[in-house]
Design a protein around this nucleic acid. Sequence first.
DNA 1: GATGAATGAGAGTTCATTCAT
DNA 2: TATGAATGAACTCTCATTCAT
Lengths: 213, 213, 213, 213
Amino acid sequence: MTTQKDNAPKDAVRDKRMAIIDAALAVISETGILNATVEDIARRAGVAKGTVYLYFKTKEEILVEMVVEKSGETLAAVHKAASGVSGIWEKLRAAMRIHFANIIEHMPNVLIDEGMLHLTAAHKKKLLNAKFAHVKFYEEIIAEHFAKSGREPPFSPLASALALIGGLIGYVFQRHHFKDAAVGPDEYLRTYEAIVQAALIGGETKSEKSKRK
Amino acid sequence: MTTQKDNAPKDAVRDKRMAIIDAALAVISETGILNATVEDIARRAGVAKGTVYLYFKTKEEILVEMVVEKSGETLAAVHKAASGVSGIWEKLRAAMRIHFANIIEHMPNVLIDEGMLHLTAAHKKKLLNAKFAHVKFYEEIIAEHFAKSGREPPFSPLASALALIGGLIGYVFQRHHFKDAAVGPDEYLRTYEAIVQAALIGGETKSEKSKRK
Amino acid sequence: MTTQKDNAPKDAVRDKRMAIIDAALAVISETGILNATVEDIARRAGVAKGTVYLYFKTKEEILVEMVVEKSGETLAAVHKAASGVSGIWEKLRAAMRIHFANIIEHMPNVLIDEGMLHLTAAHKKKLLNAKFAHVKFYEEIIAEHFAKSGREPPFSPLASALALIGGLIGYVFQRHHFKDAAVGPDEYLRTYEAIVQAALIGGETKSEKSKRK
Amino acid sequence: MTTQKDNAPKDAVRDKRMAIIDAALAVISETGILNATVEDIARRAGVAKGTVYLYFKTKEEILVEMVVEKSGETLAAVHKAASGVSGIWEKLRAAMRIHFANIIEHMPNVLIDEGMLHLTAAHKKKLLNAKFAHVKFYEEIIAEHFAKSGREPPFSPLASALALIGGLIGYVFQRHHFKDAAVGPDEYLRTYEAIVQAALIGGETKSEKSKRK
DNA sequence: GATGAATGAGAGTTCATTCAT
DNA sequence: TATGAATGAACTCTCATTCAT
């Protein structure tokens, strides 16, 4: 049994860690990775510059931990959303919706590319593992779907999962076009859902049909 | 009429400009945007550091002009590929293939995001216009396709075009996963083609059918 | 009369003070003055960083007090060694041996130079006084020796004392050469003893002669 | 044949390099190694902070190169002085005088200890080699002296050389005592010369005797 | 036009010192 | 008395940009 006294300091540490990570996300969103300074992040988090280094060894570590943390949150949310519904397509759609919302909210996560930074091998691995967990999630669902349908899988579940995520994060790099065009993220998502459905599922599912009645 | 005397220096200027842009692309590919220095770019281009500033006002301008230039090259190649074949789907597929090859070759182009840098308004606009030209290309083809098929367009051509490109560039951000997984860019492209075909075209086209025979 | 109750806390204070000083000496020996941090010293002493500041006002004070303390210990040991034997040269030699052993043991003491640090006037004075006590010790012995010998003193006792100590501490700055060369501290000391003896005493003393028989 | 045009840039480089080294020496003399900043050194040398890094990769390299350079100068001066006179003791004395003058002039050189800093292996080796060249110079002279005198060498030439230098640089660490005491560096040197002469040479040389007449 | 030495603002990081607990 | 999280001044080093040659 852990007393409150035991947890309090641990929670305080986690809180401040998360505050710094959130600050980093916010600062990067506003100024871009190239211009985000540790001082900015500290100020945003409401701590001194030196304090940041009590929680993260380097600026690089802040970025990596930010991606890992937020990717984890996203994956958890996606999992939860998918397990709340039944049916392959319903699961996929629920996952995609939450996933897309998270991608938009944590945009810098997507923009931080392993090749842009000069990460240590360990950090690079950590980053890729965090991202790959998302791929595996979709891969499993798609594989299950292909298995259930009697027909020959039209393409590999892994490639499908990668393409699916690719389409979701591709939005981020085109987001500025949406201001001019009369196409918002909602329409993008709806379109993309339809594309995926048509490609992977092939027409309406039974539950979709019954809903329409 | 322009004499040779007039053109020669202009060409020399354009050559050096392009040499610097190509050097920038190469350096960024290797070291990442964060670590690419003007000195690296100059050395790679075979000119002195100061010379770079005779052709570009700032480092930012190098990046912007690089994207504009390379995007233009890509669009020209895509256009050419599409006009070489007949049939909507054939055009789309030819375009996607060339586009995808260019995306991989000019990866930094994709990675340079308007939100990452701190661009001036003019530069940002220039960048977005260059990128949007691609979107419009696909939008037109898709719109034409929807118009030809008698049925109601399932989703807006613009959103479709954005999603289509999104899926293509999404590959770049997942490229590191492909080393571990047994999925190469070719399989990604094939899968993605199939997804797009299924979604936008709806099953095999006539030409596809005839090919199979 | 002081009760045990009074002394106990005082002793505890002195113990912790000495623990910190010893920790400082150990840390500096290992990492060098430039890299020795208060945190290192505290950890080595087994106390918290803040605790160090209950016993010393600044890091500078730790260093100064360390030198004063260790110099005092050395001087006491030297005194004791010298008073344990009779004869001028015997005293000198006994003193030099103990002194040299202490110099090697407390190397940072020697390396901490008044000009390297940016000491307050008070600290500088304290440091110099501690060091000068050593000089005076040798000066007195040498002066006594010169007085006893009928002959004119060949050089001032003070200069002699300074040169004598100079030769001893000079070892510290050349200690790295001894690894390569086949000369250890013992041979250095033996050589230096002989030099001093030849110069100040002038040939063997009577007790040396009798020992040889 | 090298034209003036060829040498000019090389000389300019060397001049600036030396200006920075001299500035480093001056700044360290005044503020101590611990407080000497690169900015101070740059200002003193009359260049911008960044310029220093065009000539030296790190601050550590400035220090190492400073020692190497000044040690080399000293050794050259010592060599020249020794070769200007004949007779072992005359050579030794001339060398010691110049050496001592250089030690006082380049005091920080002596104070920079391999154990205080956290040098890379390569830098440490470079530093030690530079210093050891001095030792070897004296070792050779002393060995020659021992060889010429028929008698058994009383102590190893190497240990003797180390002790000799030890006594010279020992002055630096006691220099502050000389302000209070009525002993200046000149008297220290004279005393030390006499000590060395008595120990290594054994009484007056013939040239000394003749001088006295 | 071309060069590259020089600049200096600004970045990441460290660490002596403080102070609420 | 003892703690160690927090602070922020100060450090080393980088690099986009300039300009005399």
